[in-house]
Design a protein around this nucleic acid. Structure first.
Lengths: 192, 192
DNA sequence: CCGAAAACCTAACAGTATTAGGTTTGGGTG
DNA sequence: CACCCAAACCTAATACTGTTAGGTTTTCGG
């Protein structure tokens, strides 16, 4: 049998595809080894352990998401930019559910310092700056934005909205409207 | 050795305490068996399998959360009620992180129909009705509320906010203000 | 061409869930 | 009170999983 000639990047990519296909929990060294026609133990030449592999998938997903967000918000401002950023997240969660799930676990220290993380933060801040918030409030706005988007998508992905009417698309519009309003009329000091 | 005299409820309670102490992933039949001084296989007399056990913890947590929310929002309305409901969630997530984590996984069909779930939904709707939203919008408001609260707490619990300044308490206040504003000025038809 | 690094393997261990079937125990009934 | 049966518990086995240690093979650059 020809050898697989694996690299950390190849293993990580396969893990991401496996996660999208069969769920994040399906990322297993055994399954990957089977996929490559290799012994499980051999993977340890390319990845420190399972946890490190999941961290790599996390960072991969972060980079892909940042790419999409960058494409989406270019040239837009305020609600248009907000919608573009949020929809980019939502499309990613739907098209790559396994990768997206990888983003829900705590980021490794190295991921926090990664280029991908910095890029996504920068894009988010760029979008928010269109709302002219006080500089000191940007961090709170970022947290609210992340909480709402991730919270909504988590509920949507795991089926908490049921398949009930009305469609969650309408709820999504309402959520974006609420965020847009919040950013346009952000409370200032004294106005708790 | 005297026998443990287990019941499904006792096993579930121990699983919940284990989760709060060592994390949701630490809920393992082996660990519970060790805790009770019993063979792992013996637990299958009381619980169908691990998945069913996690579902039971989920439902237990749902009931406890509904209790707290019920206590919290009594006699309050609008922002006071919103704050009480949200803080009840937040306190629960902090004091019972393992139980709270159990709520993040998809609810079993039986849990959806459970008394606890119905009670929490009813309390949430009661709070929202104080805002005089159109009846057809209650679903969307509920989804936004759940998304924001769960999303915020998920980010807070897994340390995504870092331990950076400013404290997430301020961000929490901002999020509640945003929700309060959203509910008070909910978009009506034509007002996208 | 050859030597070293990288890729891969075998072997082993530990922990986990799960099933099948047997044993003990305790409480209600004849 | 004896018995008996259902529930509680056990033993034994299987099948995964992750992980480490150390050996073999392939490949590629000098």
């Amino acid at each position: 049998m020809a050898r697989a000639n694996l690299t950390p990047a190849v293993v990580t990519a396969a893990a991401a595809e496996l996660a999208d296909r069969e769920g994040f929990e399906a990322i297993t060294l055994s399954a990957l080894a089977r996929h490559f026609g290799v012994q499980t133990a051999s993977l340890y030449s390319h990845v420190r352990d399972r946890s490190a592999l999941l961290d790599r998938v996390h960072e991969l997903a972060l980079g892909e998401l940042a790419d999409r967000v960058g494409m989406a918000i270019g040239g837009r401002a305020q609600r248009d930019a907000l919608t573009a950023l949020a929809d980019a997240h939502r499309d990613y969660a739907r098209q790559c559910p396994g990768r997206w799930a990888a983003l829900q676990r705590p980021a490794a220290a190295s991921t926090v310092r990664s280029e991908a993380a910095g890029r996504l933060v920068a894009l988010t801040l760029a979008m928010l700056r269109g709302y002219q918030l006080p500089e000191a409030e940007l961090v709170h706005a970022t947290r609210l934005l992340g909480a709402t988007i991730n919270g909504f998508l988590a509920l949507e992905v795991n089926g908490s909205f049921g398949h009930r009417e009305p469609s969650s698309d309408v709820s999504w519009q309402r959520a974006l409207s609420a965020l847009d309003t919040a950013f346009r009329s952000w409370p200032t000091e004294g106005n708790h």
